[in-house]
Nucleic acid binder design. Sequence first.
RNA 1: GCCCGAGUGGUGGAAUGGUAGACACGGAGGACUUAAAAUUCUCUGCCCUCACCGGCGUGUGGGUUCGAGUCCCACCUCGGGCACCA
Length: 1010
Amino acid sequence: MKASKGTLYNHLKIEKKWQKEWDAAKTYQTEKGTKKKKMYVLDMFPYPSGAGLHVGHPRGYIGSDVYARMKRMEGFNVLHPMGFDSFGLPAEQYAIQTKKHPGPFTDKLVAQYKKQLEIIGFSYDWDREVSTHRPEYYKWTQWIFLKLYDAWYDSKKNKARTIAELISIFEKSGNKSVAAVTDANTPLFSAKEWQAFSAMEQQELLMRYRLAYEGFAEVNWCEELGTVLANDEIVDSPTGPVSERGGFPVIKKAMRQWFMRITAYADRLAADLEPLDWPSNIKEIQKNWIGKSEGSEIPFDIQAESDDKESIASVSVFTTRADTLFGVTYMVIAPEHALVQEWQNAISNWKEVSAYIQKVAQKDDTERMSTDKEKTGVQLKGLVAINPANGEAVPVWIADYVLASYGTGAVMAVPAHDERDYAFARKYGLPIREVVEPLFKKTGDKDGVKESLPFKKRHAAVAVIKHWKDDTYLCLKWKKTDWRGFVIGGIETGESAADAAAREIVEETGYTSAEMVKEVSGTVHAQFYHAVKEENRWAHFHPVVFQLKNGDQVETAESEKEIHDIVWVSKNEMETYLSWVGDMQLIWKRAFDEGASSQEGILVHSGDFDGLDSAAARAAVTKLVGGKAVTKYKMRDAIFARQRYWGEPIPLQHAANGLIVAMKEKQLPLVLPKVASYAPSGNGESPLAGVKSWVKEGYETNTMPGWAGSSWYFLRYMDPTNSKAFASEKAVDYWRDVDMYVGGAEHATGHLLYSRFWHKFLYDMGFVPTKEPFKALRNQGMIGGADGRKMSKRWGNIVNPDEVVKLYGADSLRLFEMFLGPFDSHLPWSTEGIIGSRRFIERVWRLAQKLDEKASDKSVQKSIHKTIKKVTEDIAQFAFNTSVSALMICLNEMEKGKVSTKDFALFLQLLAPFAPHIADELWNASGQKGSIHRSSWPKHNPKLLIEDEVTIGVQVNGKVRAEITVAADATKESLEAAALALPRIQEFLSGLTVRKIIVVPGRVINIVAA
RNA sequence: GCCCGAGUGGUGGAAUGGUAGACACGGAGGACUUAAAAUUCUCUGCCCUCACCGGCGUGUGGGUUCGAGUCCCACCUCGGGCACCA
């Protein structure tokens, strides 16, 4: 320990020294041609923003760096790279403002950003750095695009295949037998017809199959800004939607766009989430985003209401609730639905209808989709739809609450069991018909108890009775079982629910002034064990609401009084009071707010299906009416174009004859041309449209969106300089996939989904060996300002890491960011808090100068080995805060006793991932050779962890009353005896009888006494 | 509205169903110092108490259990996602 003896800890000197040393020795260089096992630890690469870093940014990088460093010491060949997602808006804005090319500016930002990262002491292999804006990189982004353009999705083989294969199928047998993911309404053709099509016609048909395809999309167009806006760049105003910047009007406009057919992969994207080691909320978000829903398509005949009942079309509806088909009281079609136009002649109120269609068309998406907007619609008079289940003719409406883009663009309306249909039906006076009774199956059903009458025959009225004066309601509480609920009585033949309830009120409670307020529509179906009558019962409950006029009461039969008490419960307390009586609770709810009940249950009023449960009914009903089971997804195809300059050019050429020519691999990269102006062209096209030479060649003027370059960058790190492929086969075979991916949760539905999509495509085409790109994922939480607000210029609460490093050192910063709290929690920065980390580091430094050359105390040894175990386990689980805490505890212990140089070195190794500079300094000062970061990670000695004595708590009736220190291997009997012998325990037990003693070895003894 | 997740001291947080509050910040008091900083020692959930003893305590109300921050039910608050997806 000679070198640092007596010297003060100077973080500036030490950190600089070691960063230089590591750089020179290539300490963190990924090994090539090694037999070691691979470990790919990846950070989401940043956009090199000009604003620079604040202390929140490096948090994720520090976490992954700690992890990577431990893995490296554990003997893995670690790939831990960093790069830059360098196409993007800020550089584009800069170019527009300064009229300078964004390239050099971006290079400068990259350099700046890199410098800021370097002083924190990450173990990146900078030889593998990539930037998405460099032509050597985006050549391969373009190459992947071309592969996607040259592919279609075979839904039978469930994988992507090349367009050449598709063409050969078309030539042989047309498209009738091709099961593919394609545009809606793709026409069918035979082989002969295919061969007769013109090149242009063939191109258009193929476009319907390609995974990268051209189509039209409605976009938010802002004339004044001359640009397309994203949904979140638009705000509502009294005059309609306007741009957030400037407040200029925004309209919907159909524009030519490139798309990615990500929907082809919807099912696999959802299914393959399951085995991934990802945070469950991210999986959940992706699952919801994909929005898989299984249901049925059911054909409805549309008839003109004229004398001959002429059938004019068949319209399929998509529903997840085929079990409610008998409850259909009308049908709704999206206003944009093409068929509506075709029916013009059959619709008697066409004027009204077409006016409505126009009105809806003018609304933009944000308005149409806005939350509590009232639904509107118009009936298509002169038409009816025939319910295939019962042949009933129901009215047909168009309404803006039905989306043309989902399902079939038409729905069967079941107001009794769908909230939206309910609201609409109420507004327009359409009938509501209940066909499913919510079912409650209560726990406590007993096997072997005789069943009562079949469910159809048992009907019971339930009376919800309001007090004559107070705002309370009558409940009965059964004395024998504590069951609670309302007054219930069987309905006799020929009796109405109201009559039965009224009769029962007098019988059970004696109150004579009950007056019916309303009969609640919709019955509740319960299957329960009747604890009083001791049998399993099924019942239809018919809720009826009553009001007592006064407190007049007649004497009830003794038998009734014995069974239950009357309890008055207020409205507020009712839900709690009934918390475990599910059916009564539902009756209570329905008594006050009527509405649609979307719960599943048992079918009623459904012909032969009565008595079936929803799940069984769905299959049976679908089958009966000739419908088919189908799966739909919420996710839409992704737009793959931006009308901007600063992005990857799309490598396609439009020939003069309108045909699209894909560029050849050897022509790539297609490099961005020089332009006179970076500003938007003003007609919705990118600045590239203003470049004569570019347009003359017929190049695409759209550029790729931001997510193109980031969807595959992790593959490039495997072999970053390869000019013949995005990465060599050998490299891809070795590195395969990312073992640990660290980044923000905000990318859940963007980058993380798009990357998976591209990766699966590359897998289908045989370019990568794994189905998924990221085996494990961890999200870092954000660090907010000390004031609890988001760190931003606006609040003046930004803390700059450069300054923190200068003041306290990179090691202190790293340690503190890991110690602050759980890795994935959002936490406020604390200027005082970092002092604790700095103190810890200084104490380590001081301890290094007081080491004993001989042996450590036994307690110190034990403590170190305990820490080895804890830190190793915790880093593996990204529990960095508790690892740091364990290191602190260990230091506290070491300071209390003698520590040998050898044992201290173990501690330094544990510290190394968190505080790499000081660890290497002290490691080398103690005479060790080479960098600590290339040493092998210590293993704990289990023998040292065995305790011979333990202190455990002694409880009396669950409360700790004393402590007792005993031999670790003490028998149960001796523990019991020792515990009972304690004077304190004796005190608590006086006057009580010991009933039971529970002994949890090494933990606690609980004496149960009464 | 629907779907997730979280609520623990003054603060950040810790705790395989088994002694709640580890570790750290902050605070109070003492030592060292002419003094301050640094360092170091003691105390620090709340209530009662000089102190001991004791009581209370993990958002609220119930439940399961010998024992619940942890499991179950309902509610409240906050954060995130979706937003007429039939």
